[in-house]
Amino acid sequence: MENFEFHGPSTLDQALAAMGAAEDGKFMAGGQSLLPVMKLELAAPSDVISLAGIEALRGIEADGTTVTIGSAVTHAEVHESEAVRQAIPALADMAGGIGDPQVRNRGTIGGAVAHADPAADYPAALVGLGATVVTDRREISAEDFFQGMFDTPLEDDEIITAVRFPVPERAAYAKFANQASGYAIAGVMVASGDAGIRVAVTGAGSCVFRVTAMEEALAADFSAAALQGIAVDSGDLISEPDASAEYRAHLVSVMARRAVEACG
């Protein structure tokens, strides 16, 4: 790993000032995505600005219609949060299935969202639940946020401060994980609520996507049977030695059905 300047600001302003002064700075929350990348020397920022000490980025608030999670909240905290479990149990369950316990103790929602790994779980949760990414300067809908593989509209000096989820009527997440890495080969969040009926898929393609045909079928009849015969086009999916595009397409259908069944 290349050396860098480390900053541990306690306010957003300090963090932004550090970034402004840095030649090639990078914000880091829990570091569970960034540090592995830096260890492989696939990233070598001049400055690493830790967001972990900024109190304003912590905390979970639920008001009955929305749940707002500070960007520095860890996956373990989301998983264990009574407020999240009450409002969106699918989100609490999903967070409890990310990585492993130690990764969940450090990794944060803000970091995972900013990293935009196409096989991460949060993109499906955000898009499926119709969440909004809140930054220090604007709000971005999840669908506009995830633009491609590791690609988001975030400016280099922009900080995610929170993610706001509308509380759905029902939702469930079903994941088929890569046996080696634990990342999703096909992770499907199905939700219905004010944001409509959504089916969001992570892991299968180069970016999280919605399956409109499934959403329409579920709008007409919210049941596993309604998904019968609806498949995604494997031409749009990733192919790897352990999981071809064709297999992923099949798994999307299976996981979508299982998620609908889990919605109860």
């Binding site: 046996q179 080696a180 890495s181 030695p241």
Partner: peptide
Amino acid sequence: LEACRYDDDGQLLTGSYMNYT
């Protein structure tokens, strides 16, 4: 679970715990 794989050009495809189960 386990398979060490090379591609046709002799590149090791399973070079970490991310892809060697």
